[in-house]
Design a binder for these strands. Structure first.
Lengths: 337, 337
DNA sequence: ACGTTTGACGGAAACGTTTCCGTAAATAAT
DNA sequence: ATTATTTACGGAAACGTTTCCGTCAAACGT
């Protein structure tokens, strides 16, 4: 069907090896021949077969991105950054969505051990609570870089933001705005980000000598209505929180809906701050105070780091932790009254 | 390094062909042998090399998704739907982002002609104004399905929503809410969706005998600040519009920002309706009246249609146009005063 | 003038599957 | 008892590259 290197060579009266080298701009081939080959390749619209090439050279020119969600502003932006770098490098991007399921994550990772991708960018699922599949990945020498949701027990590079500091800043911001009972909306105890952010939360409470209260830690899930119920219950008690720190965007949104339904006034009765990459935070009613991560940049840096490994396999043992800064943007949802 | 079928065969004292067939559950192999093979494969953690398989069988088990943006609620949801179907089918998903550049689109498409993907799902870039690259794709017999942003001049299946009707409904909704001068925010004259939506807009104007006014068609671009300036200028004149129909979400958001800056009250002074998949439309200030596309379902249907082609190549000439319904959700931004 | 290097190219193996042909033994048909 | 069929498997070609070895003429050094 399609023209391959053999046909191309026949048309040129050259050997296959010569044509291959000419196309690769090898020093062994004369300039005149190279030009002739390139012209004929163009004329016949020759497209090298990537599977043959990948098989022979044992590289796929492809990276895999494993993420919990794609319909999520943070991850969408991160993909954007990743894809930008990949395009620059002439690489292809495979995407795998775990939907927060560990089972899917394990399956994906196991299927990536066969050479389909030259490297993996990963943000862990909320369910993931053991890391054998990742150990296998590293064991096979496949470059792996985490971003945002990392795994400390695996020796691997990771791009994150200053989650602890940001958690501290968010909580302090609420306290300074007058909050005395601050709830923390957690996504999963398994997640590095959740724990770091909670550490920051606790640290701020300590600084301002506010006692911890386990009832103020709300363990949310991936289930929207369950989350709303949980939040609703927490806001339904007499001694209800007057501040909420949401560790991820969707929990803040859930809170907004709950408040609307329960007729709780933000920020008068309840102040909210959330990690979020929502582009319309400032257009919400009230506008939402956010800690915004440089999502695009995280994606970019993660991809760049991955390519450092791919380009120089000997660096595979290096394990660099890059921490970017998130920014707290105060808005209406935490305004003092 | 990794164990291949040859090693596996050696361990089993079987021939390569037998092992291959056993793994494929071929009828030619005895049940006992199949079990033995499967167990050894598991034990040795055998992972078949996808490049070798793809090369030999001339299929990649991969589909490509070419879209203008990923940090966009509609496309993120569509990818979600696509990825769901692909996972079910055991396929891998490559993603390519054109950033609305025709040049990128052409490059991607040309690079997909070599067998890297078994099919292509595509939503055209705003810049794309000729379709030679797509003709080439079809010429090579590579299955191609459009979604949302289609191309009528190419014989190909397409999943869209009822853009004309929705455009009509949106405009009628504004008219009934009292709007007399309605601006249409266009993304690109090249886009099928923009034109269909505009047709609906014109049809509604006609029905209510509102004269067309070219000055009310605002040709926006991919440049946020340019858009805001354009919208700002349109709202700065004496006879300014009192209704806006945004053909895509980001233009509605731009309008919100402009109104905030110019202190224009929505919906009192200006009513807005927009195509949008923003999950927090109802939390905006004021809440945004949207025409919401079933983005996830569009992605799903597009993928399903693509697999129909991939599974039965003889159907490649069939060209099915599936039209799903969008829904107008009236909210604060078009409330009558 | 003779061996040696260099430049430019060709032949063929190799990558790991899949699949087209066999084929030997076992069973069935006559 | 002989032939035909089935069952279960093996050998080897093929997919399209890349790359390891040549090789042969021309240029070079002495």
């Amino acid at each position: 069907m399609s023209v391959n290197i053999t046909k191309l060579a026949e048309h040129l009266n050259l050997s296959i090896s010569t044509v291959s080298r000419a196309l690769k701009d090898s020093f062994e081939i004369s300039e005149a021949t190279k030009i002739r080959v390139r012209e004929m390749a163009l004329k016949l619209d020759y497209q090298p077969n990537p599977h043959a090439s990948s098989l022979r050279r044992n590289v796929s020119k492809t990276i895999a991105v494993v993420i919990p969600e794609v319909a999520n502003n943070f991850f969408a932006l991160a993909i954007d950054g990743i894809e930008y770098v990949a395009q620059e490098k002439g690489y292809h991007v495979l995407i795998y969505i775990t939907h927060e399921k560990m089972q899917k994550e394990v399956t994906f990772v196991n299927h990536l051990l066969n050479g389909r991708a030259d490297g993996v960018l990963m943000s862990l699922s909320a369910e993931t609570d053991n890391y054998n599949h990742l150990t296998d990945l590293k064991g096979k020498g496949l470059p792996l870089v985490f971003f945002d949701r990392t795994c400390d027990s695996i020796e691997s590079s990771a791009i994150t933001t200053d989650d602890l500091d940001s958690g501290f800043a968010a909580t302090e911001h609420l306290i300074r705005a007058g909050c005395t009972r601050i709830a923390y909306l957690d996504l999963s105890r398994n997640l590095s980000i959740s724990n770091k952010r909670m550490e920051g939360y606790y640290k701020a409470l300590e600084k301002y000598q506010i006692p911890r209260d386990e009832k103020l830690i709300l363990e949310c899930t991936n289930n929207v209505s369950a989350n709303e119920e949980l939040i609703g219950n927490a806001l339904g008690v007499s001694e209800r929180p007057n501040g909420i720190f949401a560790s991820v965007e969707k929990l803040a949104i859930a809170t907004y809906y709950v408040c609307e339904r329960m007729n709780i006034k933000i920020p008068q009765e309840l102040k909210i701050v959330s990690f979020s990459n929502l582009e319309v935070s400032s257009l919400l009613s009230p506008s939402l105070t956010t800690i915004t991560q440089p999502a695009y940049e995280i994606g970019k840096q993660a991809a760049l780091q991955l390519f450092r490994y791919i380009d120089k396999k000997d660096l595979a043992h290096v394990c660099e932790k890059i921490v970017l800064k998130s920014t707290l943007i105060p808005r209406g949802s935490t305004k003092k009254h």
